[in-house]
Amino acid sequence: MRELIDKLIVNYPYVAALIIFVIGAMTVLTRSNVFKKLLGINIMESAIFIMFVASGNIRGGSAPILNGNNSEALFINPLPSALMLTGIVVSVSVSAFALALILRLYRSYGTTDLRRIALMGNEVADK
């Protein structure tokens, strides 16, 4: 048990990522407000980003900038951070697209609550 707790404390970024991921997933799945769903998705993705960035980190390492004097220094792995830059770009474009869809939903249904939209679904469509 003690060993497990020690492991969890040493790997705290991963534990944090897990907790954030679950919070995000719960928000998406249980909330019916479209904005909350969108926020939940962003939280989930942030958790994955944290996991990736933490995996590239080396304690005591510095940013991998080679300037001639520090060739012996300990560098962190820059690749996961660079990958997550792409991930953030993707996540931003998904959010932008989702906001555009929310605007369309609000204009045609007059609400941002998915449960209500589902209830009135076909009447609006038949108009």
């Binding site: 998406v28 989702a98 369309r104 469509a125």
Partner: peptide, 24 residues
């Protein structure tokens, strides 16, 4: 049509959950 926006939003949310899992 309004249903198109509704179906697309639902698809976007679920597909993005899928992508989060794939990336994980």
């Amino acid at each position: 049509r309004p249903q198109a926006a509704k179906a697309a939003f639902r698809y976007l949310i679920l597909a993005t959950i899928g992508s989060a899992f794939v990336l994980g």
